[in-house]
Amino acid sequence: MTVTGVIQHKGFGTGTWALDAEDGKSYELHKPPSELQKKGLKVEIDGEIRDDVMTIAMIGPVLEVKTFKVL
């Protein structure tokens, strides 16, 4: 799936990287590449929802990044 949105850092535990998508949903980025670990970055991410993964952040669906494009 492809999602567009803005990268955010959410303060749960030691902090987690998230994508606040344009549709209003928040996705938790699963092991994001370091280029994506930048607050406020507008990106388009192609990835996969990992239904088999649970996390400490619990802020929304877990999105594993396959490819991404900085907008």
């Binding site: 535990g13 030691t14 987690t16 699963h30 092991k31 990992r50 088999d52 993964v53 649970m54 996390t55 400490i56 952040a57 877990v62």
Partner: peptide
């Protein structure tokens, strides 16, 4: 370390 793990 990243804070995620599998259901299994």
């Amino acid at each position: 370390a990243s804070g995620g793990g599998t259901v299994a």
